[in-house]
Amino acid sequence: MFDMSFFLTLLPRFIWGAAVTLGVSLAGFTLGTVIALGLLLLARSRIALARWIVAIYTSFIRGTPLLVQILVIYYALPGLTGIELSPLVAGVLSLSFNSAAFIAENLRAGLFSIPSGQFEAASALALPRHIVALKVILPQLVRNIIPPMASEFTILVKASAILSVISVVELTRTAQHVMMETFRPTEAFCTAALIYFLILFTFSVFTKRLEHKPSGAPR
């Protein structure tokens, strides 16, 4: 049933697709982190309006499908602003805007997860502020933030499959193309699924050592 030679001839295309998948995920993750830092700053702003905007933005992102967000950015934004975006740019932007809301929450939770006793103990030892920040707080912060950030990245890799809908040729779109050219859907989609699984499962095994909580529900 499963044709091995087919698999081998087309493997380079799938690997290219997987590279695009990882590329857009990484780009979305990086830009998303930058936006998330902005959101965190705005959320702590003294201007009520700024805090409101962050709250509404987060709620909207969490409450609507990523597919709809992508369609809005790709189809509705040009209509509203006159800016035409290429599928790749629209896709990466959607992933960034989407992940920013979740990353901001991870960063915030990480900050608050350090017990006040740590600050008190550091003060009681009369440690200078920069030592406290660098040697006491930062290491704990990093340890608290890395696991949720890693799982956020795996969620992005899975979410990036939706970019195929606006014809970004990542892994899932590659499988669709291969299916249309060869009429072999079983091989095409099984190969794509297998590559996703290998990437995501190895990544999750790798990060599970850092992680204590089970990773979150689907997006």
Binding site: K158, A159, S160, A161, L171, T172, A175, A193, Y196, F201
Partner: peptide, 17 residues
């Protein structure tokens, strides 16, 4: 560990096979 969209395609295109 497989995107939902990919699972949907798998079911939709592979089951008829």
């Amino acid at each position: 560990n497989i995107p939902f969209l990919t699972q949907v395609f798998l079911l939709y295109f592979v089951l008829p096979e």
